[in-house]
Design a protein around this nucleic acid. Structure first.
Lengths: 340, 340
DNA sequence: GTTTAGCACTCTGAAGCGGTGAGTGCTAAT
DNA sequence: ATTAGCACTCACCGCTTCAGAGTGCTAAAC
């Protein structure tokens, strides 16, 4: 595909910019008037016809203006869009609210809210992956003499896990002793390495240790597959405010998808490993979100990828704004979580 | 207001039942045909005119059938509706999934899902109130030498709270000792009674205790006001499937309200103290949900009210079904949480 | 060769207009 | 009190008309 350049490129940018702003097809006259293009509308028309030929624009019907295609948006985000950097005050405001939360849960929810409120689209934030995190302590919290709750403290936060059945009645003091003992042995491990097989070497036959460790392993495994508790969504109602979703039957599949966390996980992880990943309309594997674009990023805690966050909106999205916000919040969230 | 009786009452029930089922205005003929009424349509018309006069029915326009008013729905839920009890298999299926979760969080999410999936409406579930719960243990989980996380185990679950700054560097063993000590003194208290004032009598001047207790008190206070972490919503997309919300602009205020947890809290707590509370359309204080009805219930843990759950749908709601499901899940959730 | 003025053309969307049918209220007979 | 009969009302559907927006094409201009 030959690169688009010069005036033609400029016109494509203008059409998409304006369409994003107005949600109405853009005519040749509008392009000429609204920006100081020193050419006639006929010239613009020729260029637009060419751009349509190339598959970047589309006419809803013969006598309407042009609308970007998914491929048009693709070149737009790849080479035309100008980021809209966050203002100083916005940055500090976001930073402050984020750094005053102490539970990771709170930070996650707050980032989701900030993404949604800052863009008028929906947002999705995934809590830190467990398997890559490094264990600091493990605590057994006695619930009854026969059951205890496992709490794991890692470098990226605190996670309560399953309850574990204790073979014999165990006093709280004994739980503490056990916790210390287990912590001492597994501190520094990656959670993902905490398998029964690996444990055998360190712990041997001590049956209670084994049981606790098995439960933690299961916790990690569960969180990877059944991610319900790890995904936080916000701003779904924003979708309904977009003119392309005026009809609830268009919006319904999208909102349904956002409620199904396995679908959301797919949205978050599609699209490679770039720092900012953008998936546009028909590029999605999921039918339900073919009218949507997703701007996603990975956030890092302690230098390791910890989780994903994204904005979900119509393909007619303010990409410049979305990219800036996603990038900033990914950075800030990682930073905030890193300080335990 | 005189009570409605006999045939007239029956006709009101039929109109509302049918309207709930079809979402279309109900004509006199439909009423006669679809149910074995042994009267002519003219008679039905007279009755329906009377019911309109009384304010229970309404005509969208002169030549249409009748539609229930909010007041009509009110008498319907108060005296006409027949509950639709859950089938045996449904009961056991719900019970099983609910009793195999061990974290209260999981149970809450699952109840929300069951309410939504079982009705095609939206659902809201509030996690157990903190202030009424009885403390079993309190644990300090060391994060760094200077900070610890407070975890409280009560009779209705486990709650991780704020982190607390430890005045002096404190070893894990010391944290355990402290936890034991504090737990011993405050076990059996209501969380709501855990104020600094009350503590002074028991603990006196020991400054670290005080600090921990203050943080727990603040946690309880925060959870009461800032309830974001306590409310779980599901099935919002179901709302979009209802014909009355075909237009996204109608649905938007509702979904926005469901995303704002302070509004949801209001929905849950309005309407008195009955075991099942139903609020219909214009009865709501909130403008945004004037097209909706809410069927809410309180669930009890250990005999004390612990939290609320509700179904949110159009005023044209299958009340019989909603009531049964809400009641059953309130009971079951309370039971499940009660077993720690 | 590119640009542009001019113009015919196409298509949407709004407005206007009977016809149809559902459902009503009223009246008079039962 | 009920009901048959009937005139009436009004949303809805399909049809036509009309204006306006925006186009593509052609031929002239730069």
């Amino acid at each position: 595909m030959e690169p688009i350049e010069g005036r033609r490129r400029e016109i494509l940018r203008i059409v998409i910019d304006d369409y994003i702003a107005t949600a109405e097809p853009i005519g040749s006259d509008a392009v000429r008037e609204r920006h100081g293009l020193n050419v006639s509308s006929a010239t613009v028309r020729n260029e637009m016809a060419a751009l349509e030929e190339m598959g970047f624009l589309n006419q809803p019907h013969t006598s309407a203006g042009r609308v970007p295609t998914d491929r048009g948006y693709r070149v737009y985000v790849d080479s035309l869009v100008t980021e809209e950097p966050l203002s100083r005050v916005e940055q500090t405001r976001l930073r402050e609210t984020l750094f005053t939360r102490d539970k990771p849960q709170g930070a996650i929810a707050h980032v989701a809210h900030a993404l949604a409120a800052g863009t008028d689209y929906a947002s999705v934030v995934e809590a830190p992956h467990l398997q890559d995190q490094v264990i600091r302590h493990l605590h057994l919290i006695p619930l009854t003499p026969h059951r205890a709750l496992i709490v794991v403290v890692t470098d990226a936060g605190v996670f309560e896990g399953k309850t574990v059945e204790l073979g014999a009645p165990t006093a709280p003091e004994e739980c503490d002793r056990l916790s210390q003992e287990i912590s001492r042995r597994i501190a520094g491990w990656r959670l993902g390495d905490l398998t029964v097989r690996a444990m055998d070497q360190v712990i041997g036959e001590a049956s209670l240790y084994r049981q606790v460790v098995t439960e933690v392993g299961r916790l990690v495994g569960d969180q990877i597959t059944a991610s319900w508790s790890r995904i936080h969504t916000d701003g779904q109602a924003n979708i309904l405010r977009q003119p392309e979703f005026r009809d609830a039957r268009r919006a319904e599949p999208v909102l349904s998808a956002l409620e199904r966390h396995e679908v959301v996980a797919e949205l978050l992880h599609d699209g490679g490993t770039a720092p900012i990943r953008i998936t546009i309309g028909a590029e999605h594997r999921r039918e339900e979100v073919r009218d949507c674009s997703v701007v996603a990023a990975t956030y890092y805690v302690g230098g390791r990828p910890a989780g994903e966050l994204a904005i979900v909106g119509p393909t007619r999205m303010r990409y410049g704004r979305a990219i800036s916000l996603v990038r900033f919040l990914a950075d800030t969230l990682g930073e905030a979580l890193g300080r335990v």
